[in-house]
Design a binder for these strands. Structure first.
Lengths: 190, 190, 190, 190
DNA sequence: AATGAATGAGTGTTCATTCAT
DNA sequence: GATGAATGAACACTCATTCAT
């Protein structure tokens, strides 16, 4: 029983994510989600309060998956530089390989349907990353700037890269990518 | 007959921009735009072919305003470093002061309603900026990376900054801002 | 859940037919049909894909009723002349008594909304009639002309009669009607 | 001045007829007519009271052209049979060659927009035809049936022929056509 | 828990017509 | 007389959501 429930909940989320990716935000209706998930429209309302609630839960889910992907290989006793490198390439790879989830998160950031609470909860998974940054600052590795500035120069450029890549058919070889990483590293270190 | 009223065209655009900002892309309908602009829904179709046309025209308009703001004070015979500094602070200031137009451009990037042509036309206004970058590369000032990488580390961080600022109530003093600019400069120069 | 209500489907069809008759094809909108049928406009779309589908289904329905009325008393082993007489008077009576459905079929013939398939399906019910005609030709009773010519002189005059009757307040007594039938019979027999 | 007026009035009518033929009744709007005629929508209202008036005037115009075409070669001192033959073939030819005007007349017959007056005026041009029929009846050539019956068996079959032809790709050679005419003649003569 | 039917409110868009010049 | 601008009302259709089972 419990199993069955969660499967259905998953199916609905998955259907929604797929549709948003393939058809865009505007053309993703509750009925289409229901059809894609193989359930009745009314069934969605058994699992989610309304569309806003569904989207918020999906947002959190995507964020969780994203953050755990980014922080893979983090807990070992590796140096800060190695942690940074790991996180950055993880992020790059995830953004490249999961344009679905990624674009989804992007779309969300600008949607009034995603409320504060969800955003905060979404950000909550990055604990280890934040600790790394704070430690690095104390150790004099990173520049002494607020966290927001840090992420603005480390992760946002990747977002820009991907978007520009889509527009300009930019492709990065291994060396170029290493070079780009170096730029990010140079930017935030003393 | 009455002459086509440029003021009315403006009012419609303005109404659309305001609504997209305050309600989001999805919830901005033609009738709402009409009501906000104080005209009949049918009147919009006197000035614009359809919704897509309206949005594209607005996109181009916003981009044009944005680009001319960014490149203000560009044509004099100033050094590349001064040009860079000018553009960056212009961009920062514009993004701060015009969150409406800015968010608007953001929203657009992900909408299927904005077509290639409009996007290209939107990008077309940045000629001087591109020339500056190319010249700087030849002179050995900037790193030898593609344009897309350049903008990813110069302008996208500002976008991230603004977004983080909105979320975290981050405020930058003059010194901090200078420091952030320095990071951008460090990132792309040899 | 509630089961799809055949009564509701009928009510919608009936409302559409009545409106088309009384207001004409052009002025029969989906909302008017809905109001007339006592349902919400959206409900129509539960039962029919769109307006075209609704009209096609109605067309087929009317054609089916019409054809079965025309061919009533056909299957017994009666002579071709008796079959012809039966069909002709059936047709005349149906056209007289069901001006609504009849005019409906008429209106349809000129509408681009009624597709080939529906027209063909509509024609498909006249099998026995066509057989009668072919047999009669082989037996030398009917003139050797294509089916289209046959129907043009047998059934279309009735349509003309009805239309002229409406315009001129023509009324036929029993004898006159017999005489008209005789004309049709004379026209197509050797 | 007078000349100019009439030219414009003609252009509007012509545009309307063409559009109704090519796009169908439903898709022929006043603005489209105006564009096709090269005038402003408002100008139509200088010449016609409203859409209904425009359509009625067109109806009458088409009917007049049609009737004069049908009765071409009528006034000489020819026999009734020759008159009949002339009229019938004229009608057939006109219907074949002017599907535009013809379909237009057809469409009109079922439209509530065409009022009694216009219909009556439309019928008024057939005087000579009616006289021929009445004379033929008195001379014992034609069967003694009302005018409505006469036209139902003489002209309506042609309408049916054309419609069936469109549906079945029926084509008539010279001989077949002569045969069809003979059927019409047989039908109404003693 | 699960569902298909049902719906009022809304969508983007076009219409016949009038207004102001 | 002639016009392009302007419009309220309507169009076909879809939406997120609730109802009845």
């Amino acid at each position: 029983m419990r199993n069955k429930d969660e499967k259905k909940r998953d199916a609905i989320c998955r259907a929604a994510i797929d549709l948003i990716q393939s058809q865009g935000f505007e053309d993703t209706s509750m009925s289409k989600i229901a059809r894609e998930a193989g359930v009745s429209p009314a069934t969605i309302y058994v699992y989610f309060e309304n569309k806003e609630d569904l989207l918020n839960q999906i947002y959190i889910r995507v964020k969780r998956e994203m953050s755990s992907a980014i922080m893979e290989g983090f807990d070992q006793g590796i140096t800060i530089e190695e942690q940074f490198r790991t996180a950055w390439f993880n992020f790059y790879q995830y953004a490249m390989e999961n344009p679905v989830d990624f674009a989804f998160g992007e779309q969300f950031a600008n949607s009034p349907l995603v409320n504060r609470v969800s955003k905060d909860e979404g950000e909550g998974y990055y604990g280890p990353l934040i600790e790394m940054f704070e430690l690095g600052k104390r150790e004099g590795i990173f520049k002494n700037v607020p966290l927001g500035v840090f992420s603005a120069f480390v992760f946002f450029p990747v977002i820009g890269l991907i978007r520009n890549r889509n527009d300009e058919k930019l492709v990065f070889g291994k060396e170029m990518l290493e070079q780009v990483f170096q730029i990010a590293w140079d930017a935030v270190t003393e």
